[in-house]
Design a binder for these strands. Sequence first.
DNA 1: CCAATAACTAAACGATTGTTTAGTTATTTA
DNA 2: TAAATAACTAAACAATCGTTTAGTTATTGG
Lengths: 187, 187
Amino acid sequence: MARRKQYNEQEVLEKAMRLFWRNGYENTSMQMLESEMGINKFSIYASFGSKHGLFKQTLKNYKKNRKNIFDKLQNSTKGVDAIKDFFYDSVDVCYEEGNVKGCLITNTYNEFSFIDDEVIKTDILQFMENLKILFIEKLKTDKTKDEDTVLKQANFLLLAKHGLAAATRVNNNKEIADYIELTFKNI
Amino acid sequence: MARRKQYNEQEVLEKAMRLFWRNGYENTSMQMLESEMGINKFSIYASFGSKHGLFKQTLKNYKKNRKNIFDKLQNSTKGVDAIKDFFYDSVDVCYEEGNVKGCLITNTYNEFSFIDDEVIKTDILQFMENLKILFIEKLKTDKTKDEDTVLKQANFLLLAKHGLAAATRVNNNKEIADYIELTFKNI
DNA sequence: CCAATAACTAAACGATTGTTTAGTTATTTA
DNA sequence: TAAATAACTAAACAATCGTTTAGTTATTGG
C-alpha cells in the first residue's frame, strides 16, 4: 500500500453534479471541474475515467438524491394528488439546492437530444419511462378512468413535468404554483 | 465594381437556420456550416460577420418564416380556440420542415439558459413575451374570465407551449394531439 | 527505517474550435 | 482591352477542448 486519496469521491462527485446541473454537459470544461471539485485532472480521471464517465456517475447520483421523493410518490395512497405533490416536491428540491437550474434529467434530455450519445439518451429515457409508469399506477387508482384516459393523462403529465422543469429555471414560485394548479385542474 | 457573389444570402441563411435548428448553436461548427451552406468560411464572415451574427440573423429569419401563423393567431376572432389552432399550427410547421427538431426559439431558450449571452437571451425572452401578450389578448375575448384568471392561463399556456415544443422533438403526432387537447380542456 | 507504490503536480499532447489573412480568380466598368 | 476590385480558395492563426504522461511527493507495510 501507499498514499491514500486526499479527497472523498462522493463529496467531489456531488460538487461535479452541481456544476453540470448549473451549466450543462458541454458547457462544463475539465478546467471548471478541476476548480469546482478541488482536485487535479489526474485525480478526476483516476476516479471517474473520463468526463463522460463522470457525467454518467453524476446522473446516477442525482437519481439517488431524488429517491426520497420518488419513494414518497410510489408509497402514497392519494392517487392523482400524489402526483401533484410530486410536482411540488420536484420544484422544492430545485430551490433547496440553491444555485442549480431546473431538473438535471430534463436539462440533460434537452441537451442530448442534439447529440449522438445513445448511452446517456437511453439512461434518461428509461428514467422518464419509469416516471410514466408511476403516473399510470397512481392514475389507475381512480376507477372512473378508463385505460385510454389513463394513458393520455400520463403522457400529458410527463410533458407538463417537462414544462415545469423549464419554468423552474427562470420563473418565480408563484407562477409555478399557478402552473401546477392549472395542470391538475382537469385530471 | 467587380465580381458578384455566387450565392444568394437568403438561400444560404435558410440552410444555416435548418442546421442550427437540427443541432443547436454550440453543436454546430463553422465546418458544418461551410458544407451545409455550400460556401467558404470567408464568405460566411463576409456576409454575416461571425458565427454569432449568423445565428442572430437565423433567429430573425425564423421569426419571419413563422409570421403567417402569428398573423393568423392575431387576426383570429375565435378566442381561446385561436390559441389551440396556433398550437396545432406550430406542430405542423415543425413536421413540414422535415429534418428539424422542435421549435428553434424553444431550443435556443433551453440552450442559452446555460450561457452568458444577454443579446440572444433578450431576443428570445422578448419573443416569448410577445406571444404571451397575444395569448392574453385572445383569452380576454372571453368576458367570463377575470383579469387574474387570464394572466394565470396565459402563463400556463406559455409553459404548455414549452412542453409541446419538447414533445415535437421525439413524440409522434398522436401523442401530441392528446397533449394539446388535454391542455385546453380546462381553459 | 526504508523500499514499494499509490496519489499527487504540472506540463504537454493532438484535435478541434472560431477567426483571420495572404494570395488567386473572375467580372465589372471606363 | 485593361486596370480596378470584389469574391473566391486555402492555409494558418491563437485559444481551448478532453486526455495523457513524465516526474515528484507522501504514506504505507514489512
